[in-house]
Design a protein around this nucleic acid. Sequence first.
DNA 1: GCTCACATGTAATCCGTTACATGATTCT
DNA 2: AGAATCATGTAACGGATTACATGTGAGC
Lengths: 188, 188
Amino acid sequence: MEPLSKTSYVILGMLSKSPKTGYDIKSLVDVSTRFFWAASYGQIYPELKRLESAGLVAGSDDATGGRQRRLYEITAAGREVLHQWLTAGAPLHFELRHEGLLRFFFADAVGRDEQIGLLRSIGAEHGRVRDQLRDEIRPHALAGSEESGAEFPLHTVEFGIAYQEFIVDWCERMERRLAKTAKTANRS
Amino acid sequence: MEPLSKTSYVILGMLSKSPKTGYDIKSLVDVSTRFFWAASYGQIYPELKRLESAGLVAGSDDATGGRQRRLYEITAAGREVLHQWLTAGAPLHFELRHEGLLRFFFADAVGRDEQIGLLRSIGAEHGRVRDQLRDEIRPHALAGSEESGAEFPLHTVEFGIAYQEFIVDWCERMERRLAKTAKTANRS
DNA sequence: GCTCACATGTAATCCGTTACATGATTCT
DNA sequence: AGAATCATGTAACGGATTACATGTGAGC
């Protein structure tokens, strides 16, 4: 069996706690793993079908009246591959794409004002994400933790908050440093 | 004109300093922007052609003997769109995909030993990247800085080092925290 | 003579997003 | 009555990686 995509482990992981619809999974991802592993309907629904034909999840129709609803639950085989992935020694995929940093890299070509403006927008954006994690995602993780005893989703959000905060702080420090050594603009 | 991909800005940015071959660009990316914006030959060569037909770069054959070599330089129009991007108010694309964190999120399903082992591999991996930035990329940026006066590539590497270090530290703190509250394994 | 760096490209494939299409139920 | 939420899916597209294919020149 060819190896599963990382996103299918998100699905398996979410289903390992309780049965869910594709919609449920997407909603959950949006308030939890999204910041380090996003997923869209365009991935989730087809992936659920693939996982079902691979015997890792089992779907059952669960329509209420005229509204269609397909509830998936993880199978024993699914639990097995999830556990395998969770304990594997394989290299962990890590990827960052940061347009702000890319611009910053080339920022010698613009004036001090633009350099500082760039740092402000980068900092502001990461500040917004930090706020969102703190005010929306963290309470959600906290509730889940009290209800199920799971502590790692909470640890993960807390890492996220500290991570965003680190970038915000760095932007502020760099901004101050640049402000001190004001310099005339050097267009291209 | 449809908007350029971020990767084409990497190319334009690299060419804005001096003319280069596709090979040169790839080599440079690999010792500079790679950690927050990677690029492969499969993107660079086709993109150079597109940029040329859009009039943003100009290529000239520069073969030495039998070895083909095509040198590209940025045009005035190319400088213009680069500068536009560098000073635009557009939202900055940011994306993180972190398999280690994803596993960590689901780590309630494994035992303490595996949880700690996971933190160790995450920390070790980020430590390796930090070392690479410090020992290989930073000297390179420093040399470039002394030669051309460009300071932002250096600032960017320094951010990278601090960023990787932040994650390493966090892993160590979390590891210690988990070690203190040892717990029996709870399979799935 | 061999290996490594220089040099260019393409095709297959993967992973993922966005936009579209459709409809039921619940809340205000 | 209308809006928001629940619910499922697909098609088109975009961005990027990997593997493949090919060959030169320089240094040991």
